[in-house]
Write a protein that binds this DNA or RNA. Sequence first.
RNA 1: GGCCCGUUGGUCAAGCGGUUAAGACGUCGCCCUUUCACGGCGAAAUCAUGGGUUCGAUUCCCGUACGGGUCACCA
Length: 485
Amino acid sequence: MDTVRTRFAPSPTGYMHVGNLRTALYAYLLAKKNNGTFILRIEDTDQERYVEGAVDIIYQTLRETGLNWDEGPDIGGPVGPYVQSERMGMFKQYAEQLVKSGHAYYCFCDKERLDALHEEQQKAGEFTHYDGHCRDLSPEEVQKKLDAGVPYVIRQKMPREGTTSFEDEVFGTITVENNTLEDQILIKTDGMPTYNFANVVDDHLMGITHVIRGNEYLSSTPKYNLLYEAFGWEIPTYIHCSPVMKDASNKLSKRNGDASYQDLVKKGYLSEAVINYIALLGWAPKGEEEIFSLEELCKEFDLSGISKSPAIFDPAKLLAINGKYIRALSTEEFLRRVMPYLKQGTSREDLNFKELAAMLQPRCEVLTDVIPQIDFIDQLPDYDAQALFTNKKQKMNPETCKTILEAMLPKLEAMTAEEWTAEQLGALALTVSEETGLNKRAAYGAFRIALSGKAVTPGGGDQIAVVIGKEDTLSRVRQAIEKLS
RNA sequence: GGCCCGUUGGUCAAGCGGUUAAGACGUCGCCCUUUCACGGCGAAAUCAUGGGUUCGAUUCCCGUACGGGUCACCA
């Protein structure tokens, strides 16, 4: 039994969008599920589209998400190099081997002839394709041109009749007429391989057993297979995945900021949650559970769960899953992760951050959600007391609130630092409600609003008091009483 | 346009000839509740379409519509 070897082979042309990451994830999962090897290969042969720093983004994204590769450019491996541009010398001999075996041929057609040909075809209402002009040149003619130094490319000689079929794990058997296959270029005038050729040779040389990629390659796969057959190489298992869409008819685009992994993290998404969500985009687990750690995904992942149709990226579902992950964190861990965002919302150092985190944790779906929720902490808003302390449902009005707060103030002043806990403060509010004969909802509400100056707050007055501390609490209660006088 | 592929609630989707057509997100309602959340319970909502095949089609076959992909000396 061959061990499973999969690869993720991105082009460093920008940042990683969610669709890319998903392909990497599936390749990783398939390898790990089978105790196989996950390989990273950088396909950087297109200098035009090369983007500075893109390789680092690929490394960083895969590391952050835990998709660690077993062989790759930075760590090497038995079948390197793992950067395609460093492999450039090795392809031509393979193409020449194909010429010898009659599966490929030299083509001396220059750009002018090709342009003219295509123009003619277009005029005739046809779609452009190579006409096979050099396909049947005699060996003598070929040698003569070669000797004369005429520039050439090497083209694959497609069969003119019959059909080619291949098996895809997702789409099943796919068959195409051979006469629809163009004699594609394998080696360019500059001696370098085209992507399609390099890809086949590299995958074979690297021992790739399962090719996982986007289904934009579905149509070119028959050509790949003909190449494998011509070499007598073993054909890998194909797994083509439908794209991740932005809406019903548009793929997720790189331009649309929120589609990239980096941006999601910046917006306060947890990388575990992002991985979990994108695993679910176009793949369904066997059971009903859908929250999985990467490790669990390795066990759970199965090719039969990959769906054929495109999946629309749903930010609302990602949000919900992210919220679940946030709530599942320990308070300490949540605090650690949310701290940078808390710092954006408050400059105070004296807060009880643990209590603050506990308060905020069930109230955010992304880490950035904490920022607007703590806007009352550094500075009490300039609120309208008459309006804010009026709430029929809570039986609150300015007078009752004033009575309550005045009753609370001395009791608060008397509390020691040890007693200053949410439990004791809650009990205090209850006592006041009993003593004044006023509704307990009003007691709780008055205290909460006095401390926050807001109708809607994360958590109750008792918790807020713990967060901001005794001194600030007393000051805010006094201010409220004054406003109500 | 040729070729290839796809189509189950608003979204992700299970299903693989006979089901009350799962589940999740979202939406709505109720409960819990010191506001807002969390949590709990419940509801509405789906087989693109027309023909076959079959005792019986969401499921199999053909057509139609719609959507996607691909037809480079790009990857």
